[in-house]
Amino acid sequence: MNTLNRHQADSLQQKPLAGVGLRHGHYQDVLLSSAPDDNAGNALVSPDFIEVHSENFFADGSPAQTFLQQVATHYPVSLHGTAMGIGSAAGIHLDYLQQLKILVDAINPLMISDHACFCWSAEGSGWRHAGDLLPVPMDSVSLDIMVNNIQEVQQFLGRRLLIENIVAYVPQNADAMQETDFLQEMAYRSGCGLLIDLNNVLVNASNFSPSAGSGHKDSTLLTPSSLTQAMHWVSQLDAALVGEIHLAGCTQPEPGALIIDDHAQPVSAESWALYEYAIAHLGPLATLIERDNNLPSWPELLSEASHARNLLNKVQESRHVA
């Protein structure tokens, strides 16, 4: 199965990649400026890759798809889906898969990813889409459904998927599998890779840790104990399964409220700390700065990507020395 084309695979092996999620507010920026300055007038390095939400480019032959093809002539593009719902017991709508296949064939993406969640429900002869990443119980039934769905999609697309851990806002049953065990078993059996969103790990640790209880008790976004738990979570991962890391930030919640993974803030200090720990453990993996709301300027996002790249380079250099 073709995961990456040869050029892409070579470039992944040669240098660590730090990319940026591209959203509508930056469409002009990405084509107009390949190397803008930061606020201090220092030249910033271009992103190593661009990641987009696949569904935003589904309209075949549309100006949006033409635009993405233009972007793909400047940067490697990764397709990140938000609506595949790989854990759906109903399966995945064929129309959705066909649209994704057309886009994959048009763009030849660096990576293809989606989330460990369900989105689809069968309603008589029709379908309903949740429009959100809904959690699945981490049990053997979900595992079987996910493995089957992933294998079917990978075969349909002729490409390997990366599946991302999600934030869940309802707690898992007490007898559920550990999330890392669940995700890794899914990856071993289906042949997919994992995309690890470190902010999601931190948010889950904070929202549902035994110490925090259900709901966030104080006004601190992420506590030291949630960082410790998140590091433990990452330490359980088999590095060979992980293909990408997402970095994001989220808005400070009201006391007592759950933290919402809104991707509306810069990457937090806790996320950077967890990131350093993660790449030391997992290796200098392709890393994406993800921002969906409250978009900053394009140079600000590039600046965060540059910081990630510097950390990746350090890890790579230390591995070469060792």
Binding site: A89, A90, G91, I92, H93, L94, L97, Q98, W120, A122, W127, V141, S142, D144, I145, V147, N148, N149, E152, V153, F156
Partner: peptide, 24 residues
Amino acid sequence: AHACQADSQQLSQHLLSQEQLNQR
């Protein structure tokens, strides 16, 4: 691709019972 659709008894046939699938 068709196996990805709902109401597929083939889905997980070797792993999941139809009852488990319906329940989920």
